[in-house]
Amino acid sequence: MNLAVIEPTTSWYLVLAAVLFGIGTVGVMVRRNPLVMFMCIELMLNAVNLSFVALSASLSDINGQTAVFFVLVVAAAEVVVGLGIIVSIMRRRSDATADDLSVLKG
């Protein structure tokens, strides 16, 4: 079998995105540091972006890339607000884990 003739199809990209999404899910559930949980959410967002772009190329539709553009902007805004919340929590206790945030519940 000649490796040079094998071309990655759209499904390869989608499977990679699914695996990346799964890794991000595990990270959000396992890690306790809120910063690292945030990074895992970024992993999941990137998995979705990857499948958007792969399908955009596959279906010849530029709107998939437009959606990724908006996801990028919203992700940036989300990180700014999230890190602001984390900073104001960690200012009080620098070793706070996600469990300590349960004081927020009513």
Binding site: G22, M29, S58, S60
Partner: peptide, 25 residues
């Protein structure tokens, strides 16, 4: 749960593979 999520998505991709084979231009 993570492997389950990834597995379900991959199963859906494999199932609908024929629809994805066409690469547009």
């Amino acid at each position: 749960v993570g492997i389950g999520v990834a597995g379900v998505i991959i199963a859906a991709i494999v199932k609908s593979q024929d629809a994805l084979l066409v690469r547009g231009t």
